[in-house]
Design a protein around this nucleic acid. Structure first.
Length: 319
DNA sequence: CACCCGTGGTC
DNA sequence: TGACCAAGGGT
């Protein structure tokens, strides 16, 4: 959960997950859809699918006990170089070179690396090896000490070098230009994509929702139907090919949502539909409007439903 | 290796 | 408001 996500954001999710599924075996026995629902709002949804795959693998191949070597750990779904090293060190108290974003920043500053991230990752790892050598019987303390140093003292902005226990070894500190590091490559400008999203409501107050395909954005998550997001043309016809005779669209406004590598602007439209003429594909179903909050919408679709519900209750409808 | 993948907080 | 950032991993 903590991969690219802050402790405050994770905390309540972690508590709920470990209460629902106290052991790896429990998680492996859970329905994947329920895991995704519980993950809703945390982002990077492939992590949830990988977590489930990982629990299944650990249950089947290791009897529910995580292996204790980096070589075995890194083969598990969702476990990469950082997590494999972190588990080896923190869970098993064995020597491992744990490099997260904090350690990257610390090493970049210690060595005053001019090579930018992410190209410098290899160099950083080679240098970090020395930080983790000959650290005695408490191997698990070093990665946590370094990560805490990075998050509290050697911070991205305004690091408090006066409190840093290793400032005497820091080349960036010596140069007085510590905020310059780590140097980062320029990132590509973030494009804007547009699309449409539909709120389709039956006369008995049910909404058409669908589960998104696994290999797309928000894969596996519940969603509202809509157009594709990847071009400027309205794909209304294609998006609604399974729905006959939708008329009397009401435009409700636009939703802006910023993803990691693009900004999305969705036009929100609503319409009444007749249950009779409805042909649902296998990923779609109707859900009562009062249950819409329990679906496990990712934030994008929460924004949309909040807009619609606010719109309705404020009496601003103009039909 | 470059790109893809969410979200909420901060300055 | 926008850019940056967070206990990265998969393809």
């Amino acid at each position: 959960m903590l991969q690219q996500t802050t402790v405050p954001a994770v905390k309540s999710y972690f508590e709920r997950f470990t209460a629902l599924w106290p052991t790896v075996n429990d998680l492996a026995a859970a329905p994947e859809d329920l895991i995704l629902k519980e993950w809703a709002g945390l982002g990077y949804y492939a992590r949830a699918r990988n977590l489930y795959k990982c629990a299944c693998a650990v249950t089947k191949e290791y009897g529910g006990i995580f292996p204790d070597t980096e070589d075995e750990l890194i083969q598990l779904p969702g476990i990469g170089p950082y997590s494999a090293a972190a588990i080896t060190s923190i869970a098993y108290n064995k020597q491992a070179t744990v490099v997260d974003g904090n350690v990257e920043r610390i090493v970049s500053r210690l060595a005053a690396l001019e090579e930018p991230l992410p190209q410098s990752k290899k160099t950083i790892k080679e240098l970090a090896v020395h930080l983790y050598q000959d650290i005695g019987p408490r191997a698990s303390d070093m990665p946590q000490a370094l990560m805490d140093l990075g998050s509290m003292i050697c911070t991205p902005k305004s690091p408090t070098c006066g409190l840093c226990p290793i400032s005497q070894y820091c080349k960036a500190r010596k140069s007085g230009d510590q905020e310059k590091y780590p140097v980062k490559s320029k990132k590509a400008p973030k494009p804007t994509r547009i699309g449409e999203v539909y709120w389709l409501e039956t006369s008995s107050g049910e909404i058409l929702v669908e589960k998104r395909l696994n290999d797309r954005m928000l894969g596996g998550m519940m969603a509202l139907p809509g157009s594709n997001w990847d071009n400027n043309a309205s794909q209304e016809e294609e998006a609604l090919s399974s729905i006959t005779h939708v008329k009397n669209w009401e435009e409700c406004g636009k939703i802006k949502h910023v993803f990691t590598h693009f900004t999305l602007i969705l036009t929100v439209r609503k319409a009444g539909i007749s249950k009779k003429n409805l042909i649902l594909n296998k990923n779609q179903h109707l859900v009562s409007i009062k249950d819409i909050g329990d679906l496990g919408f990712p934030s994008l679709y929460k924004k949309v439903s909040n807009m619609i519900l606010t719109f309705d209750s404020s009496g601003n409808r103009n039909e």
